[in-house]
Design a protein around this nucleic acid. Structure first.
Lengths: 210, 210
DNA sequence: GTCTATAGCATGATAGAC
DNA sequence: GTCTATCATGCTATAGAC
């Protein structure tokens, strides 16, 4: 039953521990405890706590991104993409990959090795989002204005920040998400503009951006 | 010279320690070390490490927000507000209040007492930003669309997320900031719309938002 | 592969000399 | 108010029995 799946239990335990106790409350002992295995096995299977965290963060993110891929491919409009984003955010409250990434990011600021792993995990989200934006904005008046690579990263960073903020002010975070949603609907409208308005807008834009 | 300013040295030491070693590397001993004082004084002056962190976070944020107030009051357009935001972001790289808030937020997720203090500190930023947005959008076509309270919170959360992201991918964070800036210039253009386009836009918006 | 036991060090916090 | 000394506990990591 649990020959080489002790490894998996440790990975799952690491993720659950980060979610429940944050990066500050995560140690070989707390992980092993929630995983229901012996503490020494962390070092036998992964060498160190840090390495377990790196593996766990990547594995958990992969598992969470995989089902997301099909859903994002089915999206055919900006509005649908926004809706998918809100669905995702709601699901994250229970499944919590974003919080894991946030805690890992906090721990990464003083540790280059963690930073590398966390960056890799983040890019598992960034890639598909960027692709979707490229597809949806391909023949939009916004295509020349927005940099989809940068926007995808901004979206991910925003999710991280919102998740952390939600921990200390849930109603405030909800208001923030609503505000962004309404602002995004503005972009959506512009995306749907007719050719005349489109040209007018482009003229206006030409003199304003940096 | 340093009678009751040992207190201040500990506060400064706490902030500097969080910035250099993150929340995971912050302890009574590391703080006292960078402050150049004895470790026991943390508990004499503040009772516990957590209480020192709460005081320090609030004090550092107050000190950083104070000079910001005059600058945000001088702003007279959305473009200027965006520019101020970018200036602020550049300054934060060296002064680092946003990183302190990010690390405190990470630590707050499993600690309600820290959460309360961090939330209070965050609102020192949120308040003035919300005020500025209210003032600048007062008679804009966007006034009915955007919720300034929510938007102010979204902006703060976004800064937090970007700062964390910058730690693991500096060039990616730069691209993200640029993308947001360009997107914001779109909002700026709409803010400057004439009455005809304004009415057309309002009609389009009426059927689209949730 | 998994366990116990333990080394060696860092931690929060306190007691008591000065 | 500040110091030294100390306690109890938690931590990473390893050695060695099974």
């Amino acid at each position: 039953m649990d020959m080489a799946d002790t490894r998996q239990r440790l990975i799952d335990g690491a993720i659950q521990t980060i979610r429940q106790h944050g990066i500050t409350g995560t140690s070989a002992r707390t992980i092993a405890n929630t995983a229901g295995v012996n503490q020494a096995l962390v070092f036998y299977h992964f060498g160190s706590v840090h390495e377990l965290l790196e593996v766990a963060c990547l594995a958990a993110t992969e598992a969470r991104v995989a089902p997301f891929l099909a859903r994002v491919d089915a999206v055919t409009s900006l509005r649908q993409l926004l809706d998918l984003g809100r669905q995702l955010h709601a699901e994250e409250r229970s499944l919590g990959n974003v919080m894991v990434l946030a805690q890992m990011l906090a721990g990464s600021q003083a540790d280059p090795k963690l930073a590398k792993a966390t960056s890799a995990a983040l890019h598992l989200w960034i890639g598909p989002i960027e692709q979707a934006l490229n597809r949806l904005l391909a023949d939009s008046p916004l295509a020349t204005l927005v940099d989809t690579a940068g926007l995808a990263r901004a979206v991910c960073a925003g999710f991280i920040g919102l998740e952390l903020f939600e921990g200390v002010d849930p109603t405030g975070a909800h208001a923030a998400l609503d505000a962004l949603d309404r602002l995004a609907s503005l972009v959506e409208v512009i995306d749907d503009l007719g050719p005349v308005a489109r040209r007018a807008l482009r003229g206006k834009l030409r003199k304003s951006p940096a």
